[in-house]
Simulated assay, not measured.
Amino acid sequence: MKKILLVDDHSIVRSGLRNLIDLENDMRVEDEAASGNEAIQKVRKQKFDIVVLDISMPNKNGVDTLHDLKRVAPDLPVLILSGYAEQQYALNLIRSGCKGYLSKDADPDEIIKAIRTICAGRLYISSALAELMASELMQPSDKLLHETLSDREFQVFFKLATGKSVTEIGEELFISVKTVSTYRARILEKMNMKTNADLTYYAIKNELIN
């Protein structure tokens, strides 16, 4: 029986997923968390076979939560289940260590299949993600600008785009202001942009933030 931790700030989403999973005889929802911080606390105290994680959450978003989970429990697999389509986040988060990515409009059968696949120790590649990966291999020059960023650069980019200051980012990531400033300069250079406002506009235009 595979033990699942559901992490989503909307109780109705967690309830729907729980009802779906309860129909299966080889898995169960062991616990739920409404925030990234709560998820980290539960993972420190309990044993789970997989975390099903949302991206858009207050205080600690799914990008940061994934990073923290990889630090706290490196072998615990994570399935991202997000309202954002695959082309917006999937490649970056696969690089960050998640084992699968699905949008919330995926068929219920596919969500169950993804959980089973990941619990069996494999990466779950949806058809949409497979297409993205093939496109990257065939035409690497066609990458979106944010897909050229490293794992840590993407994390800092996401925070800058949502309006956080260099000081706030340093405190949240436990790195110096100087280090954050270095990342910021590198991000602006890679994306050929000049200001944080440019990053925010890009993120909104590409539906990375609402």
Rank of each mutant, 00 (worst) to 15 (best):
L17W: 00
P58C: 05
R14Y: 09
M57Q: 06
A33M: 10
D49E: 04
L53K: 00
K60R: 15
N59E: 15
T65G: 03
N37A: 08
A33C: 04
K45S: 09
I12N: 06
N19Q: 13
L17A: 08
L53I: 04
M57T: 10
V29S: 04
V52P: 06
R44H: 03
E32F: 05
E38K: 12
N59R: 13
S11I: 12
N19V: 11
S56D: 10
N19Y: 01
D9E: 04
K45P: 03
K47A: 08
M27E: 10
V7S: 01
E38S: 10
I12V: 13
A34V: 13
R18T: 15
D54K: 06
N19D: 14
I50T: 12
N25T: 15
G62I: 12
L23N: 08
S15R: 12
D9N: 12
V29C: 03
M27H: 05
D9C: 04
E38R: 05
Q41H: 08
N19C: 11
N37Y: 11
N25H: 13
K42L: 09
G16I: 05
I50H: 02
I55G: 02
G62P: 00
D8K: 07
H67L: 09
L23S: 11
I21N: 11
G16V: 02
R28K: 14
I12S: 13
Q46P: 04
L20Q: 02
R28T: 14
I21G: 13
D54F: 00
K47M: 07
G16T: 02
D64A: 14
D31Y: 09
F48V: 05
G62V: 13
L17T: 14
D31V: 08
S11P: 10
R14K: 11
N37K: 11
G36L: 10
I50V: 14
V43C: 09
D49I: 00
V43E: 06
G36V: 01
N25E: 14
N61Q: 00
L66N: 02
R28S: 12
D9H: 06
I40H: 08
R14L: 13
G36Q: 06
V51S: 04
H10N: 06
V51I: 09
D26S: 11
R44E: 10
I12L: 07
P58S: 04
R28L: 14
L23Q: 14
A39P: 05
Q41M: 07
R14F: 03
E32C: 05
D22S: 15
E32S: 11
S35E: 12
V13L: 02
K60I: 15
V51W: 01
N19G: 13
